[in-house]
Design a protein around this nucleic acid. Structure first.
Length: 587
RNA sequence: CGGGGUGUGGCGCAGUUGGUAGCGCGCCUGGUUUGGGACCAGGAGGCCGGGAGUUCAAGUCUCCCCUCCCCGACCA
C-alpha cells in the first residue's frame, strides 16, 4: 500500500512557471516528473508507475502479435552508422561522444542499422523469415528545440520494432500486423487516434502512416474529412480529381493593366475597368505562376514554374516532397536575371513549358482543370490576358500537387469539405523496403538457393510521449484523470480522521482488504492535514476512483468518488470492498 | 538556427535614482484546529543563471555566455 505520509512526492499548489501545456504543467504539479536536464525528465514514483504501465501494455500487445523483444545498447559505435551514411546525415540531431582512446560513439536516435545487422548475424535462410523484433529503449536526439515537457524531449522512451520478410507480400502482412497491433495498443491506452497517410519521400513508393492523437498542442498538422474517414498529413493530401470544364469560352484578349503586379491589385483593376456582367472578379479567376528553383543533389539547379489559382498559396514543402531529393526554393533575383523571358508580376503560361520559347518546365496544380478559363499575365509588363483556356490556349508539362491545403477543400475520397487539425504523433508505421538490407548486405537464400535481399519495415511508438498524450486527453481544471489501465494505482483512499480514531482504523482496514483482493492502493494517511488539502491532492493526482473515509462513517458509509464522472456516492462500508473491486475489474 | 520573452530559497513572485535581499505557499518547533488548499507564535533555508567589467559599493549598470518558455526553421 502506498502511503501519502511516506510517498516520495510533493504536489505544488501553483503551476510551474515554465510549463505551458497541460500535460507538462500537471505532471510536474502533481509530482509525477521533475525536469533534470534540458529535454530530460526524472520519473518520480507515481510517474514511473504510469510509464511502466504504458510500457507493459505495449509489450503485451507486441508479444501477442508474435514480435520478440530484444535490447540493444543505447551507446553505439560510429562505424556501423558510417555504413549507411547516417553518421553524417543525421547532422546536429545526433549525440556524438568519444571514448578514452578517441574512438567515436553515438547515442542511438533509432536502431535500423543495429537490427539489420543482428538479423544478418544470425539468419541466412528464407525458412527463418518472417521475423519481427522490438525493443523498448531510451532514445537520444539532440533536438533543436525540446518543448512541452515530455512531448518533445532529447531523451525519451520509445518502442521500436522492425520486420524482416522475404518478399513484398510478406512485408505487407507484417506491416498490417503492426498496424493492427498499434490500433489495439492505443485503444487500450484510451488514446484517441487518427491514422494519416504520410509522405514516404525519397524512400520511394513505400507505404507510411502516422498515428496522430488529435490534440491542439500537437506539432503535426493533418487534414481529415468532415464526412468520411479520409485523413492525411497535409503534405500527403491528394487533390480531388475534378471534372474538366467543358463550357465554351470567349477568345483571348490582351488588356492593359498598369501597376498590377499582384493578384489583389489586378482583381481591383479588373472590377474597376473590365467589370463582368454576371459577378465580380475574384482572385480565384486568376492564374498565379510561381517561379521556383530546384536544387538537385549533384548541385545543379533548374527553374520550375508552377501554376496555381490566384486565391491559393503554393506550399513549397509539399512540392518539395514530390521532387525529392531535390530541394525547392523561390527563384532569387539572380535567377530571374538569367531568364529575361520571365516578367515578374506578369508571367503567363504562353511562354512556359518544355516546348515553348523559354523551355522552362511548367506544371499545374490539379485544381487548374482542363478547359478552365483564367486571367493571367501576358508576359509583357503592364498587360494581362483574359479568357485564357487550359488546353486551348496553353498546355503544361504535367501536374503537381502544389497548393497549400486549406480547410474546406474537397475530400479526395468523397468531395465533402476537409478540415485541418493538429495532432501529436504517437506512432509511425513504415515500409522501409530494401534500403537498409541492401546497404548492409542482409540477404538470405530462397528455396531455389538464390540470394534474396530481405525487405524490412520499421515501426515506432513513443512510450514517454504516450504518457504525456494521455495526460493531455485526460485532465480538467483540478488535475489529472487517468484511465484505469494506466493509473499509478487502482484506488486512492482519503481518510479525514486523526491517527488512531475510528475513521483512520476503518480506512486502514479497507485499504488492507482491497489490497488483499489484488488492488493497488494509495492511502492518504497524513496526520494533521486538513481534509481540503487531501481532496485537492487527490483530484490533482487523478486516480480514477477516490474513496473518502470520513464523517459519513458515522452513518456506516464511505464515499465513492469517480474522478472522471465527478460523481460522489455514499456506499455502506460493509459493501465497499465488493463495489470497489467490481469497479476496478470492469475497467 | 532566426525572432520575442525569461532567470531572485523547494514552488509562485516583489525588489525604487546602485548602498549588501523580501513576501505568500511549502518546510521545522510548540500550541489551537479538522469536510474543500486552517490559525497563532517562534525558526531554518538564497554564489540573486554563469563569467568578465564599471564603481568605494552591483540583484540593480555594461559586455559575453548559458537556461527555460513561446513563434518559426528543423524533426525515424
Amino acid at each position: 500500500m502506498l502511503r501519502s505520509s511516506t510517498l516520495f512526492v510533493r504536489t505544488l499548489r501553483d503551476d510551474p512557471a515554465d510549463a505551458e501545456v497541460p500535460s507538462h504543467r500537471l505532471l510536474v504539479r502533481a509530482g509525477y516528473i521533475r525536469r533534470a536536464a534540458p529535454g530530460g525528465y526524472t520519473w518520480l514514483p507515481l510517474g514511473w508507475r504510469v510509464l511502466r504501465k504504458v510500457e507493459a501494455i505495449v509489450r503485451d500487445e507486441m508479444d501477442s502479435m508474435g514480435a520478440q523483444e530484444v535490447h540493444f545498447p543505447a551507446m553505439l559505435p560510429r562505424d556501423i552508422y558510417e555504413l549507411t551514411g547516417r553518421w553524417e546525415e543525421y547532422g546536429d540531431n545526433l549525440f556524438r561522444l568519444k571514448d578514452r582512446r578517441g574512438a567515436d560513439f553515438l547515442l542511438g536516435p533509432t536502431h535500423e542499422e543495429m537490427f539489420t545487422l543482428l538479423v544478418k548475424d544470425l539468419y541466412s535462410s528464407y525458412k527463418d523469415l518472417p521475423v519481427s523484433l522490438y525493443q523498448i529503449q531510451t532514445k537520444y536526439r539532440d533536438e533543436a528545440r525540446p518543448r512541452a515537457g515530455l512531448l518533445r524531449g532529447r531523451e525519451f522512451l520509445m518502442k521500436d520494432s522492425y520486420s524482416f520478410d522475404i518478399d513484398d507480400a510478406g512485408l505487407a502482412a507484417s506491416y498490417n500486423a503492426h498496424r493492427d497491433t498499434y490500433e489495439r495498443i492505443f485503444t487500450r491506452l484510451k488514446l484517441p487516434y487518427v491514422i494519416v497517410k504520410a509522405m514516404s519521400g525519397a524512400m520511394g513508393g513505400s507505404a507510411s502512416e502516422e498515428f496522430l492523437a488529435p490534440i491542439e498542442v500537437g506539432e503535426d498538422t493533418f487534414v481529415r474529412c468532415t464526412k468520411c474517414d479520409y485523413s492525411a498529413n497535409t503534405e500527403a493530401v491528394t487533390t480531388a480529381v475534378l471534372a474538366p470544364d467543358t463550357s465554351s469560352h470567349a477568345a483571348t484578349a490582351v488588356i492593359e493593366t498598369p501597376n498590377c503586379p499582384t493578384i489583389a491589385s489586378l482583381v481591383d483593376f479588373l472590377n474597376a475597368n473590365h467589370a463582368r456582367a454576371d459577378r465580380v472578379w475574384t482572385a480565384s479567376d486568376t492564374l498565379k505562376n510561381v517561379v521556383l528553383q530546384l536544387r538537385h543533389p549533384d548541385g545543379t539547379t533548374d527553374v520550375l514554374v508552377v501554376g496555381v489559382p490566384g486565391d491559393r498559396d503554393a506550399d513549397i514543402k509539399r512540392i518539395e516532397a514530390q521532387v525529392s531529393p531535390s530541394e525547392v526554393e523561390p527563384l532569387d533575383d539572380a535567377g530571374f536575371a538569367k531568364h529575361p523571358g520571365l516578367i515578374r508580376g506578369y508571367i503567363g503560361p504562353q511562354v512556359l513549358g518544355a516546348t515553348s520559347a523559354t523551355g522552362i518546365r511548367y506544371l499545374l496544380d490539379p485544381s487548374v482543370v482542363a478547359g478552365s478559363e483564367w486571367v493571367t499575365g501576358a508576359n509583357v509588363a503592364g498587360s494581362h490576358v483574359l479568357h485564357l483556356v487550359n488546353g486551348r490556349d496553353f498546355t503544361a508539362d504535367g501536374t503537381i500537387e502544389a497548393v497549400e491545403v486549406a480547410a474546406g477543400d474537397p475530400c479526395p475520397s468523397c468531395r465533402e469539405p476537409l478540415e485541418i487539425a493538429r495532432g501529436i504523433e504517437i506512432g509511425h508505421v513504415f515500409q522501409l523496403g530494401r534500403k537498409y538490407a541492401d546497404t548492409l548486405g542482409l540477404s538470405v537464400l530462397d528455396q531455389n538457393g538464390k540470394q534474396v535481399v530481405v525487405t524490412m519495415g520499421s515501426y515506432g511508438i513513443g512510450v514517454s510521449r504516450a504518457v504525456a498524450s494521455i495526460a493531455e486527453v485526460f485532465h480538467d481544471d483540478l488535475g489529472l484523470k487517468w484511465p484505469r489501465a494506466i493509473s499509478p494505482v487502482d484506488v486512492h483512499i482519503v481518510v479525514t480522521g486523526k491517527n488512531g480514531d475510528d475513521i483512520t482504523v476503518a480506512g486502514e482496514k479497507l485499504g488492507a482488504e482491497l489490497e488483499a483482493k489484488g488492488l493497488e492502493v494509495l492511502i492518504d494517511d497524513r496526520n494533521g492535514v486538513s481534509p481540503g488539502v487531501k481532496f485537492k491532492d487527490a483530484e490533482l493526482i487523478g486516480i480514477p476512483t477516490i474513496v473518502v473515509v470520513g464523517k459519513s462513517l458515522a452513518d456506516g458509509n464511505i464515499e465513492l468518488r469517480d474522478r472522471h464522472a465527478g460523481t460522489n456516492e455514499a456506499v455502506p462500508l460493509a459493501n465497499a470492498v465488493q463495489r470497489i473491486v467490481a469497479l476496478v475489474r470492469e475497467g
